[in-house]
Design a protein around this nucleic acid. Structure first.
Lengths: 349, 349
DNA sequence: TAAAAACTTGCAATCGGTTGCGTAAAAATA
DNA sequence: TATTTTTACGCAACCGATTGCAAGTTTTTA
């Protein structure tokens, strides 16, 4: 078992009687190296099985080709699809992805942001933890001109890239759909009001109600952590009301499924007695019986878009290395959402 | 906007009139440094906001504190839970996780294994691509004594850590369960025979049939890529048979759900006409109606276990740096599986 | 043909911890 | 008090690629 040392540019330089600087430049098509030399170097490098030491390059340049990802939890349909999209784009461009999960804890988020920073990630994509209010721990990325993309769960007061859906409009559409199905007393099961995703959807919900001259009953608005169990609990509370709702807009499918199960257990007819709409279009939405009407949004595409923002930023930053434009970036990308009507809400043909 | 340079051990050394070597050693409790000095150095480092440059350390030691992960696809319930478990353990130990997905392509797997190797990961956890037959691209990790863990989809002829379930026994249990429910003609929808996960389950299936004196009908064994759609297709084929099955053992829940949907569409009674058992206990299994009987296995725990194998290996390797034990490692860890009986197969009270 | 311009390549410092080896200082032993 | 041991720390090379600047060579221009 030979401890064969990796071949370095020094080995190539020695073999070719050239300087390491020439090798280094030739390998990345530096314009001051002649085409002949470039070709020869590349050929020899190939022959010798040369693979550049990423760490050495990173140390020198004080940056890696790693995109950091910071999300609440990996094993959620939406998040894992998001990551899948990120990884796909990154991989194609020769970048790697480093994944971390905050478990929806602000404290973890702060620590992980530091860890990613220390890892010299070339960019970071983050979806905020449920209880994050202060986002100053991300400022260091801005200061170092490291591209930062907030995706889905974004802060409202941070000038940087944002990739998201129009939550207000989605909430409005969802609620309006229920109204169109004849619902007059629509409940709303939501998450932390600190997260734009939920506060905005709620805003859309409220506006849709008001527009239809329906009253907004605080009793019908329940704040939860959006688990399946909490969906069940919220549903129980709602159905036990003296004047129960005839429609529910739940901000994620997991909790919405909990609502369906309770409704079924109580022999409520869906959608006749209670129409239900969820959010995300998780796989279960199309599997459950009745099919869950939901708001679909392109998770994979959101990931891809986020990754592209990072890559583009890096590309243009390289070009304009001379022009030290340090303007604050405020680029918000909205991806489309769609009401996916299924049986849980279709009262009409 | 000050381009405040990061503080290095040089800065600390200068401030304290000590050598960088002393700082470096003090920060990691090297025994030759006095406790007084260690405390002082740590205090100053803390004050100055020192954060070690991972790349520099990695370059020198030719290794990082990154665990590489190579899986088929991230956005699958089983895989994302697996990764979640890995990340959790890694994070607690101060390690990072680099994720890549082969998309079930052998070629991608080869390239990604190289990329992870080049990234100087300190260990690698892999679940093989669907069509991987040759695993020699992993040999380089062994040669460099980089711990390699195969998880779930493992090769049969590679001496290294393996974390998996007893697929044979699981397949046997699943089939036997159907037999106990009175099924006499049990179909089997499986994946690539090159993957241990599927070939072993099939072996268990066959043995369970033989043991019960049931005939093994090749017509009832269908090989697929295990998507929802292929589950539907396979079900259609089976149900169209002149002598259709009265039970189906599907090696994943996704395809099993496809089977259920087709059965329902054809108004077959589940489980009276056709009993169905899946594999994985994906979230949909408990949501779908009827509930899908399935084989559960601890995805998160498999991830955790895999990560621990890596960490333990690194720990013991550090201790026995003098004892250059290079024996081939063949450590197989089996995690438990369980038949989760739900409505899709319970014919009896 | 001489001088200027353009093209190629080399030199050497740099990034920031890590570590083998040497040595000064303090403590233990003779 | 002299000598051996132990303790504590410093020196300097090292990991491998990158890059500003210098310098040599060739081509172009006057």
């Amino acid at each position: 078992m030979e401890e064969s040392r990796d071949v370095t540019i020094y080995d190539i330089a020695e073999r070719m009687n050239l300087a390491t600087s020439t090798i280094s430049r030739a390998l990345k098509d530096h314009p001051t190296i002649s085409d002949k030399t470039i070709k020869k170097v590349k050929k020899v490098a190939e022959e010798m099985g040369f693979r550049p030491n990423i760490l050495a390059a990173g140390l020198r340049g004080n940056s890696t080709k790693i995109i950091g990802v910071l999300v609440s939890r990996i094993n959620r349909p939406f998040i894992s699809s998001l990551i899948s999209g990120i990884e796909e784009i990154a991989q194609k461009a020769g970048y790697s992805v480093m994944i971390t999960q905050s478990h929806d804890s602000y404290e973890d988020e702060v620590n992980l942001s530091k860890a990613l920073y220390d890892s010299r990630v070339c960019g970071i994509i983050c979806s905020l933890a449920m209880d994050t209010r202060d986002t100053s721990h991300f400022q260091k990325f801005i200061d170092k001109n490291i591209p930062l993309v907030f995706v889905d769960r974004v802060p409202k007061d941070f000038d940087t890239y944002r990739v998201m859906i129009d939550n207000y409009s989605a909430g409005y559409k969802a609620t309006k759909h229920l109204i169109e199905q004849g619902c007059r007393r629509i409940a709303h099961i939501t998450g932390s009001p600190y997260r734009n995703t939920y506060s905005e959807r709620k805003r859309g919900y409220v506006d849709a109600l008001l527009e239809a001259n329906l009253t907004v009953d605080e009793e019908l608005i329940i704040e939860t952590t959006l688990t399946y169990e909490e969906g069940e609990t919220a549903a129980t509370t709602l159905f036990d009301l003296p004047n129960p709702p005839d429609g529910v807009f739940v901000v994620n499918d997991t909790a919405a499924v909990g609502v369906i199960q309770i409704a079924k257990k109580r022999s409520l007819r869906i959608p006749e007695d209670i129409a239900i709409i969820g959010f995300n279009d998780d796989p279960i939405a199309s599997i459950i019986d009745p099919g869950l009407t939901t708001i679909s949004h392109p998770a994979v595409k959101m990931g891809q878009t986020s990754a592209k923002k990072i890559l583009n930023h890096l590309k243009s930053a390289k070009k304009s290395a001379d022009t030290p434009k340090k303007d604050r970036i405020t680029e918000v990308t909205f991806l489309n959402t769609e009401v996916l009507v299924r049986a849980s809400s279709s009262r009409k043909e």
